[in-house]
Design a protein around this nucleic acid. Sequence first.
DNA 1: TGTCCGGGTTGATCTGTATCAATGCGATCC
DNA 2: GGATCGCATTGATACAGATCAACCCGGACA
Lengths: 246, 246
Amino acid sequence: MAIASAALPECSDCPIRHRAVCARCEPEELDALSRIKFYKTYAAGQTIAIRGEPLETVASIVKGTATLTRSIEDGRTQLVGLLLPSDFIGRPGRSEAQYDVTAVTELTLCCFHRRPFEELLEDMPHVRERLLEMALDELDAARDWMLLLGRKTARERISSLLALIVKRSIRPDGGILGDKGRVELPITRETMANYLGLTIETVSRQLTKLRKDGIIQLEGKRTILIPDFGALLAETGDDDDGGMIF
Amino acid sequence: MAIASAALPECSDCPIRHRAVCARCEPEELDALSRIKFYKTYAAGQTIAIRGEPLETVASIVKGTATLTRSIEDGRTQLVGLLLPSDFIGRPGRSEAQYDVTAVTELTLCCFHRRPFEELLEDMPHVRERLLEMALDELDAARDWMLLLGRKTARERISSLLALIVKRSIRPDGGILGDKGRVELPITRETMANYLGLTIETVSRQLTKLRKDGIIQLEGKRTILIPDFGALLAETGDDDDGGMIF
DNA sequence: TGTCCGGGTTGATCTGTATCAATGCGATCC
DNA sequence: GGATCGCATTGATACAGATCAACCCGGACA
């Protein structure tokens, strides 16, 4: 979650730039992977996996945004991960989904059946190494989010999310933050609320307040302008800038 | 966090049963590990690492309890991990601590200098495999905790923590839950509060309420009796029992 | 035996966020 | 153009949990 997408070698004839799978592969390894991979696309809102149900594939996200959620039967829902291009879905060695996975935009996945993928992994220690690095990065991100959920105010949460989105340069086209600090939100207010442990009303109110305070400008519902990124960071409640250089 | 400690081969002459490091090692590998390991003990309350400062060792917990925390300068603190015997501290490939690590009881660590440990790892793929499994287990646990922090009520949080402690059989002596459902809390109310994203007053009040409702009995401050574990689980807000068999 | 001290409990009150309810607003479809 | 629908905003009110404050209790120590 907390990793910037850098330019990576492509997976053979594949448009995907898997951080996990291809970053350090030799050409013959990429070919072997290509032989067992297949693509799958989902429409916005479509369910990809349900907690507890068998999931015999792993996948990298090629294009679009998906969410990982945990929820309680009474309807309470918590988003536990936001999946963006080059993120990895699925856990080697486990055949059941641990989370509900849902496409929030149109989504393209590069999939592998679990078994053959695991067999290939046997001879590709660097892929397992990458998977470990990614899991540890995800763990750090999850723990940062625990601080947010446990201790931050609504205003700090919203600011943190906006800052995160800017840092990850989340845009439907996969582009980098423009010079004017314009950000396209890839998610609805409801998704934001579920990520932040708030209600949609609180999200809406806090966005309005940040606008009135001049921290952000709203351009339509889904576009946010950030005139002064430092001012936004000052609202996040974090001590530092999280290692960003701006 | 979410792993039961099973009997494991010991690390040569070492009393520790590292899940991560020793579980699948050959005798000669254990010897190699033994040659570079060293023990360190800490008093309750002592600081083991501080976020952002260099940490040139990794370690397994042999005995005692430690916490991982993230905090904000203004004093707000969130516990992001509870470390118990056989848990692993430190991340291969990273030389700075990401969290504050503190001993909450008297603590014994089995340490390795990072460099030589990483070099040994080169030839022990099964250790890296174990580290990946553990990281993914931790990630699942962290995400479960996100649901708790984002969406559960105070009563549900307390119940969840008690249930977790029972499941992990957390006791100073490392023993297993007794037949009468007696649990020793290894942590203070303040630590509980920081884990649950609550205040100590709320923790105290909810414990009192659970006692009045007959879900638990308090025996002194640190011992809790659970007459009916199912009744406690019903208070956690979780749909299922998390795969426990009782 | 009294004092101190750290941790825990309990009470009164405050407040940030949830909840309930109404309204706005743009897109789509007839 | 009007009806409809999904999403977002805004307002009024309720309430869970925080905050502030007092008190309790057991152990250490003089």
